[in-house]
Amino acid sequence: MKESFSKAFQNLFKKPQTIDYPVTEIKKDKDYRGLIEYCEEECIYCLKCEKACPPGAILFVGVENPPKNEKNKKGLKYHYNPYLCIYCQECVRACPKPNEALWQSNKKPTIGVASDRVNDEWFELEAIKK
């Protein structure tokens, strides 16, 4: 009885366990597996990441005004869907130039809302690819 009272009393003056999250940011470790980032100039367009991705969240689709890069012979543009990505880092391991052309940052993905049309645009792209 005595013990539990003293414990309860101590707990009254302890720092709260809760992190007041939206007000105070939680610092992420630098190795946290967040969004996949891509650099257009460094890419050699080997399409290994596209093949390696288990859910198919990376797509190279031919466009009219492709990014200017001498390796890009087919006129492709990189697309990435953070809502389809499973953050497994397999694309980075498959990439011949990891940390230059493709790397995994520790940034959190953004929250999508209905007006973003996160799905429709992506499935249009997939239809073009086929």
């Binding site: 470790d29 190795d31 946290y32 953050y87 497994c88 880092q89």
Partner: peptide
């Protein structure tokens, strides 16, 4: 777990 693997649940 997040420290070692970079993800809280699905470790890969």
């Amino acid at each position: 777990q997040e420290l070692i693997t970079g993800n809280r649940v699905q470790f890969d």
